[in-house]
């Protein structure tokens, strides 16, 4: 079980959170311009690294906000958690 630091609520048990997969994947700004291979990349292809991973978590049983997590996929150690947008930082 992980202890995850929500940027707003502090450290809480993993069971309060839901996992949102790989982070830093942006929705295409101009969807009509994408070809099939680019859609496949956005929708399905993932880096799935063995080691450092940037990922999304949601504090679903708490403040219900999304945030970013730097975690190692082998040791499972969480290095840091951070708000996704600079504008959110003062909300801490």
């Amino acid at each position: 079980m992980f202890l995850i630091r929500c940027p707003w609520c502090g450290e809480r048990a993993e069971t309060e959170f839901s996992y949102g997969g790989e982070g830093e994947i942006s929705r295409p700004l101009d969807p009509d311009a994408l070809n099939d291979a680019e859609w496949a990349d956005y929708l399905f292809l993932r880096s799935n690294p063995r080691g450092a991973h940037k990922e999304l978590w949601n504090h679903s049983q708490g403040c219900r906000r999304w945030f970013g997590v730097n975690r190692d996929t082998v040791s499972y150690k969480i290095d840091s958690t951070y708000p996704l947008h600079a504008s959110e930082e003062d909300g801490q």
Binding site: S18, Y19, T73, S75, Y76
Partner: peptide, 8 residues
Amino acid sequence: IDAYNGYG
């Protein structure tokens, strides 16, 4: 499965 990615 555990929801998160893991190789451990």
